[in-house]
Design a protein around this nucleic acid. Structure first.
Length: 578
DNA sequence: ATGATAATAT
DNA sequence: TATATTATCA
């Protein structure tokens, strides 16, 4: 099919630092436009091929599929209807297609995007617009080969640096990327037709990551180890070392985590306020315990946290260690005294953490959705199966094809417990720190004296495991294990997950962030109530963690809250979760 | 890096 | 439908 088309390949290297020039096939019936675009692109460092006719373009795309990165085409071509090339191109190549047109009508633009174009440029195109054209080549590829690029786009493509600018430029010119539009407009329903392709290339939405207990544990561990000061998404991600986990995932989770901590504190404060101190607490203890449990496990944070910690220094962590080390449930209790000593309130971290809410996710098994990603540590298939079955809810679990599950482990460690019923409560539990962590923590602790008390929640000891230490190992294992993801998933998926260790640990949560801040503000609070709660023990049940989500608000009283939560946990959490 | 908000799951 | 979780945007 290549007829007379003129294919000119001019490679200009000028500027771009790219490792490999991005090759672009420019299709336009107008020779002048073709020449101008070709020159502009060459000057920008792209490898350019041109075609005047749609069929020529298809021919080229087919022949050079491996080396062609992107097609930039006019919407109106002499030998094909509007967007017809777009459709036909899909059949011969996965190469992303960018449309350029004089028509700036939104419907026309959407039509092109829905037909599978990755982007729609409204003419005239500027050098500035083209500068970042390479981005669309990546977009397409991300599903396939390029997965890794997402993180490294910039490094790979020298121009990436300009991304910001470029984007701005693009948008300023009123362009929209297809994904974006699709997302927004789909609801309306109008343009569905084309989605078809999206699938293949570009657009799919990212599967939703489910933060399993294990994953959460891993997260908590990372946070603990890192300490408040450096517990930022990037660092956490690195520490977690979970294969397909992205920084954004961590950021989002971190946000939720912090929010939960905040809520807990607030709840606590309220509680205090109301029923202040005084005797209340004492008496409450019992109740408190309850609370804790619930709190602990589930909502962990609320109560637990408390610690104050000192300022910046590494404090946070430390506490944990203590807790960790001895898990005594009561541990939490103990702290109090300590706490004050330091003078600052501190939080205890661990104990309280909230456990996450995973449940929800899990509960029903899974996400029904097809897209969710699951990271489980354990992944024993068996286990999984079991768990699923066992729970009613879980039953639902299906892992059915849809979601992706990441499991890392074998199961042994972590979740073996899970296996059985599917839920092992354990999972959530408090954490123990394991080796490294603990050590680190301790070290840190030593530095500062913090206090913390553990939250009520903390669980008693965690049982578990021996293996904890392994975290690292585990991770390693995981990595290896991991395997499975779905290819299909658009972006890359994750790989299996990691963390097991956590499992053992259980619950804990730390407070980390929130703590400080909050604490700082209100330092003392912790004492009051929390301390006591040894209740924790019961906690185990708690195990579950609930995650953050709790609404402290609902219940004014901690107690109440606690009760409520606990119940949940009992009923739901575990089972559901696992 | 973070808070706000959209999307979408339960 | 309301709420909760996660992704994405700003």
């Amino acid at each position: 099919m290549s007829y007379e088309k003129a294919i000119s390949i001019e490679s200009v290297n000028s500027s771009s630092p790219r490792l490999e020039p991005v090759s672009v096939l420019v299709v336009d019936g107008d020779s002048a436009c073709l020449a101008i675009l070709s020159r502009m692109l060459c000057n920008l460092g792209y490898k350019v091929m041109t075609a005047k006719r749609a069929y020529d373009a298809l021919s080229i795309a087919q022949k050079k599929e491996d080396e062609l990165h992107l097609v930039l085409t006019e919407s109106h071509l002499p030998d094909m209807d509007k967007y017809e090339l777009l459709e036909k191109m899909k059949a011969v190549s996965k190469v992303p297609v960018v449309i350029m047109s004089d028509d700036d009508d939104e419907n026309a633009m959407l039509g092109g995007l829905f037909k599978g174009a990755v982007f729609y440029f409204v003419k005239p195109l500027t050098i500035n617009s083209l500068k970042n054209l390479w981005q669309f080549a990546i977009i397409k590829n991300r599903n396939h080969v390029v997965i890794d690029l997402t993180e490294e786009e910039s490094s790979v493509y020298g121009e990436s640096q300009q991304e910001n600018t470029s984007n701005e430029g693009l948008e300023s010119e009123s362009f929209m990327t297809r994904d974006r539009w699709l997302r927004r407009k789909n609801p309306e329903g109008t343009y569905k037709d084309e989605e078809t392709e999206n699938s293949d290339s570009t657009s799919q939405k990212k599967p939703k990551l489910v933060w399993t207990n294990e994953l959460h544990k891993s997260f908590l561990q990372a946070v603990r180890l890192l300490g408040v000061d450096s517990a930022h998404p990037k660092n956490i991600l690195q520490h977690m070392n979970v294969p397909g986990l992205r920084k954004e995932n961590v950021s989002s989770h971190l946000q939720k985590y912090r929010l939960s901590l905040k809520r807990e504190q607030e709840a606590i404060m309220k509680a205090r306020a109301r029923g202040p101190k005084k005797s209340n607490f004492p008496s409450h203890q019992s109740s408190s315990t309850l609370n804790f449990r619930g709190g602990c496990s589930q909502t962990p944070n609320r109560y637990s946290t408390s610690t104050a910690y000192q300022p910046k220094r590494r404090s946070h962590v430390q506490d944990l260690s203590s807790h960790m080390s001895r898990p005594s449930p009561a541990g939490s209790v103990c702290f109090p005294s300590q706490v004050y000593s330091s003078g600052h309130p501190t939080l205890s971290n661990e104990s309280s953490f909230p456990s996450m809410p995973y449940h929800s996710n899990y509960k029903n098994g899974q996400p029904t959705l097809s897209n969710q990603l699951y990271y489980t540590n354990y992944h024993n298939p068996n286990h999984i199966g079991n768990r699923i079955t066992s729970n009613k809810e879980l039953a639902g679990f299906r892992q059915v094809g849809s979601f992706v599950r990441y499991s890392n482990f074998d199961g042994n460690k972590n979740f073996s417990s899970f296996g059985d019923h599917g839920h092992s409560n354990l999972v959530d539990f408090p954490i123990l720190l394991h080796n490294s962590t603990q050590q680190e923590v301790q070290q840190q602790q030593q530095l500062q004296p913090q206090v913390l008390f553990s939250p009520p929640l903390q669980m008693p000891s965690p049982p578990p495991q021996p293996q904890e230490q392994q975290e690292n190992d585990i991770l390693g294992q995981e990595r290896q294990l991991q395997p499975q993801f779905l290819p299909s998933s658009p972006l890359q998926m994750p790989s299996p997950s990691p963390l097991p260790a956590a499992a053992e640990q259980q619950g804990e949560q730390d407070d980390i962030f929130g703590l400080e801040k909050q604490l700082m503000q209100s330092p003392q609070w912790h004492m009051p109530s929390m301390p006591s709660m040894p209740a924790a023990p019961t906690a185990h049940e708690q195990e579950k963690d609930d995650m953050f989500g709790i609404e402290s608000e609902e219940t004014d009283d901690l107690f109440d809250i606690a009760k409520g939560t606990t119940q949940h946990f009992n009923d739901v959490d575990f089972d559901d979760l696992w």
